[in-house]
Design a protein around this nucleic acid. Sequence first.
DNA 1: ATAATCCGTTCACTTAAGTTAAGAAATGCG
DNA 2: CGCATTTCTTAACTTAAGTGAACGGATTAT
Lengths: 192, 192
Amino acid sequence: MQDKLFDFISKYISLSDDEKSTLLSLDIFHSVKKGTTLLKEGQNSKESYFVLKGCIRTYYIIDGEEKTTAFYTEMDALTPHCVLSKAPSEYFISCVEDSFLTVSNSDMEVEINSKFPKFEIMCRKLSEELLAKERFNFDEFKTSSPEQRYLNLLQKRPDLIQRVPQHQLASYLGIKPQSLSRLRARILEKKS
Amino acid sequence: MQDKLFDFISKYISLSDDEKSTLLSLDIFHSVKKGTTLLKEGQNSKESYFVLKGCIRTYYIIDGEEKTTAFYTEMDALTPHCVLSKAPSEYFISCVEDSFLTVSNSDMEVEINSKFPKFEIMCRKLSEELLAKERFNFDEFKTSSPEQRYLNLLQKRPDLIQRVPQHQLASYLGIKPQSLSRLRARILEKKS
DNA sequence: ATAATCCGTTCACTTAAGTTAAGAAATGCG
DNA sequence: CGCATTTCTTAACTTAAGTGAACGGATTAT
């Protein structure tokens, strides 16, 4: 499973065996059970996550209702907003499935980055790439209707629709669960 | 005006006078007239922008209609998706107002980053911060109605509503211009 | 095993956004 | 300056999402 991490890293920089073992010595690999809450609203966490297997989600509680805004699956990285802002978290992070993650601390990252400048380079490339992707996804969201967004998701992340509860998917698509149900029924009708 | 750039940079790293003059020698400062198109769909650009004064926007043309998805104003940085993906651009970038920008080339950035590791650090910090912000904005968008999004914009970027045409604002809010007009009339009614 | 809770779907009704069209106001250009 | 184009608003109508409620089916807890 560690190799998955190294495969991912190799897309950005090349690591020596020495550097690899330094990474492994940090004890960042963790197995997390479905339903576990990794971060709560109001907490001041310094932890970042990288999903090797499984799925985690971020959600807000607004007027007592859960609003899921993002899913992170295999090879997705998440540094919560509160880690950078050093302010209490506005949202929760929880485990959608039994998952295998790397969990790293921002102090630890600062240390590694200063020891291995390579690492700094990887982080820059990765966050630049993720920023561009995030902007693109946001653009797509803005320019399409709920139905188009659902069809788009069906194309791009068909796995999500299988592995995630409908009501979480609904808020991810920016609508209510009932609307998602109706929308799906409408699509099925059209096909026939 | 250059000082504005250095003030911005100083939030992330400290530059020596030597480094400052190296930066200035690169001839990255440009004045751009309102209406100028900086990037066209299909182009393979390597240029990134930083807005010192003015406003630029990204927009798509979908079914012959302009869809504005983002505005970049004072102290905003934009590296277009196509620069990183090295694929033709999916969108246009144009100048909303007469503006003063820095325009930098990705080859130039690679060179600077290798000469000044400090710069690499700044880029990492900046893109991490922007990524967190972008995700937060996306979350807000998903979890609110068009009316809430407009009211939120009124709070957070009141200047935009003044300086940008309504029909561009509308698609930025994910709705049609007619709906924005109606929505504003509705809000005015409520207030009275 | 049974009760309780949660989840997804359906329905009827309300509300708001999309669509089409028309006209007024502002802007740009010859 | 006046004409043309673009932009903004309004209106009537259509379509889709929000709301509240009810129903089975599944999952969880007791």
